[in-house]
Design a protein around this nucleic acid. Structure first.
Length: 565
RNA sequence: GCGCCUGUAGCUCAGUGGAUGAGAGCACCGGACUUCGGAUCCGGGUGUCGGGGGUUCGAAUCCCUCCAGGCGCGCCA
């Protein structure tokens, strides 16, 4: 990308000006190439002299002059200026944008991709909702986010795997509660008196599960004891239905996991017990009050944590540790990104400490906590409570406003921010809805191509088209947008910030609409210009498609917007 | 009480330690179609970047503190 080329030019200049020792504190990051807010300050700008001046205790302005004077001549750059406290500003010659367009048209679906990750094995684990109910609006946000993040990492050269962790372990108390709820509903369905446990699952789908069970097995399970073993038994009866439902919900969101990892696998291999034993041997864990404790404070946690209860059954930390060993040691991931809901925020420090205890290096495990989503309808937030039973499933939302609009709205905001999901806005197919604004730009692009074919415009190969004819301000703005795309991908991946993509898609659509209004593409009187503009349109389409591909929104491009206004 | 996240225009939000310019969308008002899709475009104005202090040549951005909101803090997951 162009920023890298400029960085290399600066590096060359530095090599001529400064002894290598003076460059020791310099990293790629300190040679920052950015786009100035004020266009008068050039097309690109570098703060290298300001950073280096501070490091070497030299006047930045003077240093900047020296560096600027030694930047090798190239056709891409018209002139270099030093400004302000010591910025080096680059004024590009017009051909740089033509080169970018050529790169884009040549690379096509690879445009914007890089090998930055150098094939490192990264796992993104996300959603991982317990198999006790469908995906609902409280836990769905991690889905589109994790999926888009995985796409971004793959596009920047990482070897990415998507994983869903199914918490179906035999020691999971949530499952017992859920199983007991199913059991109670099952008995009620057969007119046998039974009470839903306190804090049990009240939602309607539990009643439906019970009904399904009666339909399948009749009264075959009435003699099952109403204790933990009975609860687990009932869970086992409905488990595959639940997992199947989770599969369907994720598929509905457009997510394909590479692996559904089941917690039971860890117990079948006796991995949980083995890990606890290892920790006891290494001294990282100890016995107290009949329980086994992890000495988590040694590894930065606030307090030590129980690994094995007094009853002898392991806690979730124990199985999460065994799971981590499976990820890092057995399967050899260089990095694992855990995407969790806000209710898990307090668990980060705990697992981090536990990971340190098994020798996972800091930075190998990343934790991304997404914030809550409020769904608004008529300006009022929808209330949801899993326990009280008035849950709203992600399937309902998708049925309502469509998969792509759902994903777009989820992805629009930073995961750090609380998200207001405006259902009324998402339902609209009008100008207020950013989804259709972007979609409309693509529809227009397709229409131009269609029209070109209809009118018999011959599409010339790239080397026969004079791109230097693209000089209109709106053409240049659009070209600049195409040029900015690779760095956007790079930074969004690095910052784990997929939300920048919908914003960029909107801006790209905006630049295109503006171009479309002022610059007629197909003009029989100006065939050479038409050819150049067709290339620009094609470049826009490539970027738009790549962008929406990363967001998992290619469906938007397949749907043709209505012809009626 | 402790921890995490947030606080930017009337509303919803972008914003990468940079420049005499802190930006979008929505909403509101006014304009633009004989020709590629008007679900479009153009113009119009709004800010103690929650308050205070600090670091820096330079802070919405980093640090401290206070205020406000959301979420979490179990031998539940």
């Amino acid at each position: 990308m162009i920023q890298e080329q400029l960085q290399q030019l600066i590096t060359k200049a530095l090599d001529k000006v400064l002894p290598a020792t003076d460059q020791s504190g310099l990293t790629d990051l300190s040679i920052d190439i950015e786009t100035p807010n004020n266009p008068e300050h050039g097309d690109f700008s570098s703060n290298v002299a300001l950073v280096l001046g501070g490091l070497l205790d030299q006047p930045p302005r003077q240093l900047a002059e020296t560096i600027a004077d030694n930047i090798p001549d190239t056709l891409l750059i018209k002139r270099v200026e030093v400004a302000g406290p010591g910025f080096i500003n680059f004024y590009m010659s017009p051909i740089w944008l033509q080169e970018v367009l050529e790169q884009c048209l040549t690379a096509r679906e690879q445009y914007g991709c890089s090998d930055y990750g150098a094939g490192q094995k990264v796992q993104v684990e996300f959603v991982s909702a317990n198999p006790v109910g469908p995906i609902h609006i409280g836990n769905a946000r991690g889905g589109p986010f994790g999926d888009a993040l995985a796409n971004l990492l793959a596009a920047t050269g990482y070897d990415v795997q998507r994983e869903y962790y199914v918490n179906d372990g035999p020691e999971n108390t949530q499952l017992k509660l859920f199983g007991a709820s199913v059991q109670a509903r099952y008995l009620q369905e057969l007119d046998i008196p039974a009470e839903l446990p306190e804090d049990g699952y009240q939602a309607d789908y539990v009643v439906e599960l019970a009904r399904q069970l009666v339909q399948q097995d009749g009264d075959a399970h009435t003699d099952v004891p109403t204790d933990d073993s009975g609860a687990l038994y009932f869970f086992s009866l409905v488990k595959e239905w639940m997992v199947q439902r989770l599969h369907e919900d994720c598929a509905a969101m457009g997510i394909q996991f590479d692996r559904w990892f089941r917690e039971t696998e860890l117990y079948e291999q006796d991995a949980v017990r083995q890990e606890v034993d290892k920790l006891l041997q290494s001294g990282a864990a100890y016995q107290k009050d009949g329980a086994v404790w992890l000495g988590a404070t040694e590894f930065g946690d606030d307090e030590d944590r129980v690994l094995v209860r007094r009853t002898g059954s392991p806690t979730y930390i124990a199985s999460d540790l065994a799971y981590a060993v499976d990820k890092f040691v057995k399967r050899g991931f260089d990095k694992v990104i855990y995407v969790w809901g806000p209710d898990h925020a307090g668990y980060v420090a705990r697992l981090q400490a536990a990971l340190a205890a098994i020798g996972v290096q800091p930075g190998q495990a990343e934790f991304i906590i997404y914030q809550t989503v409020r769904f608004l309808e008529g300006g009022q937030p929808l209330a949801l409570s899993k326990r009280r039973g008035n849950i709203i499933t992600i399937q309902q939302i998708i049925d309502d406003i469509g998969r792509d609009a759902t994903r777009f709205f989820f992805l629009m905001r930073s995961v750090d921010a609380h998200l207001d999901f405006d259902l009324d806005l998402a339902r609209q197919h009008g100008e207020e809805n950013p989804v259709y604004y972007v979609q409309y730009a693509h529809a227009r692009i397709c229409s131009i191509h269609h029209e070109a074919t209809q009118r018999g415009f011959e599409i010339l190969p790239l080397d026969e088209v004079d791109l230097s004819l693209l000089t209109h301000p709106d053409e240049l703005t659009l070209l600049r947008k195409i040029a900015d795309y690779p760095q956007l991908i790079q930074r969004a991946a690095l910052d784990r910030a997929p939300h920048r993509l919908p914003h960029f898609a909107y801006e790209l659509a905006q630049s295109f609409h503006q171009f479309y209004t002022t610059c007629r593409v197909l003009d029989a009187d100006q065939p050479a210009l038409s050819q150049a503009r067709l290339k620009l349109v094609q470049g826009t389409q490539i970027v738009l498609q790549n962008l929406l591909g990363l967001l998992g929104l290619l469906g938007l491009l397949g749907i043709t917007a209505p012809k009626e206004m």
